[in-house]
Design a binder for these strands. Structure first.
Lengths: 207, 207
DNA sequence: CAATATTTAGTACAATTGTACTAAAAAATA
DNA sequence: TATTTTTTAGTACAATTGTACTAAATATTG
């Protein structure tokens, strides 16, 4: 990819993360990297083209993570969580304006809707595997793990937003808290065997 | 309160819920209720004044709910959840643009930040009571119920947003799912006694 | 070198926004 | 009724936005 085009993307990402999409105009981006708006527009005909490129960049990076998951199950599920969180932080602007973006961009909206379904299926597969390995207990409520997924997805997508609304800035500790929240969310569903492994992965969390 | 002023609020609420804050200008509101922008501005000097009034309206309504909670503990906790969800739905525009609002409005931002802390304390108090009544088990992980609160707060504030990003419209079933998610979130922490009561409250959820 | 394609800058424009301001109309008050 | 206050409409304005368009500069190619 063209060097200018690439720099437009990284500059936009930085500015979006810093000030939120709504407050970053094409002029803001152009001024920030000292090129003309005309030049910027030569590389991205529509403003939304920048957004979409960044979105699919993120999606692709996440997909690459998920595929590489293999060996020790519980540990690798936790590791994936960590990696996803890091990526989410890198593209945090996106999550902070998630609803607005989906409302204004049909392309991203539709893509995420189908992505969500795919992720749901993948999650339930992992759950099935965890049960098979005797790490997770059986369901005792209707669609218990489906709702667990839904909750995890909300937390995953909106935890950064939540932190901001609490009046804090996003930082390293935000990421750490995210990981604790996600892992603790899983904990009550683990079998004794699962809890034993959990203790090894997160010794600091134990009382 | 003045009739015109009141109608401005209800009209704004409807329009905000329908199209999102960003797409509702002062002219949109004025045109919709067939008054002049000048008149609108007479009642609300700043655009944000409308927003703030609606916000504090919601806060007050929620406060009234929480205070009236008394008797059968687990059931009333669930009942409160339902009522809050109904109010959130009524003012859903607010949650759908929560981060943007907090970024742009210092007054609301600061108020919510302190409200969050208050709610956290209240939640932990209720947890203590539930434990005392033998309905909730003791903590086994560090800050386990604090993180449970954090998760509940994220889900509570961003569930509607999440549904929209999944490509669905908000409806009655959205509210129902919210209630199931929130109650199932609590379930794994209940004692045998607590689970027994749970079964009475949500017989449909049992396998 | 000459010709062509790519990249850049600059200007212009139409649309929208929040808000300030003025004056008329309506309501309240004395 | 007279006058004072409240409410309403209308106009104007400055700022910002995304984007279209033109022409110059630069790089590439033959």
């Amino acid at each position: 990819m063209n060097a200018t085009k690439q720099k437009i993307l990284t500059t936009s990402l930085t500015l979006f993360n810093q000030h939120g999409i709504a407050k970053v105009s094409l002029r803001t981006i152009a001024d920030s990297m000292q090129i003309s708006v005309g030049n910027l527009q030569y590389h991205f005909k529509k403003r939304d083209a920048i957004l979409e490129t960044l979105y699919f960049e993120l999606v692709e990076k996440i997909d690459r993570i998920i595929i590489t998951a293999t060996d020790d199950l519980l540990a690798s599920v936790c590791a994936i969580t960590t990696e996803i969180c890091a990526l989410f932080f890198e593209y945090r602007f996106f999550l902070l304006d998630f609803t607005a973006i989906c409302r204004n961009n049909e392309k991203i909206k539709q893509h995420y809707a189908s992505l969500y379904k795919r992720r749901e299926a993948e999650f339930l597969q992992i759950v099935a595997m965890l049960i098979q390995h005797g790490l997770l207990r059986q369901e005792v409520l209707q669609h218990e793990f489906l709702y667990l997924f839904k909750r995890m997805e909300v937390i995953s997508n909106f935890w950064f937003s939540s932190v901001l609304t609490q009046g804090h800035e996003l930082s390293e500790s935000t990421i750490q808290e995210y990981e604790i929240m996600m892992s603790q969310n899983l904990y009550p569903y683990l079998t004794e065997k699962g809890k034993l492994q959990y203790r090894k992965i997160f010794p600091d969390q134990m009382l």
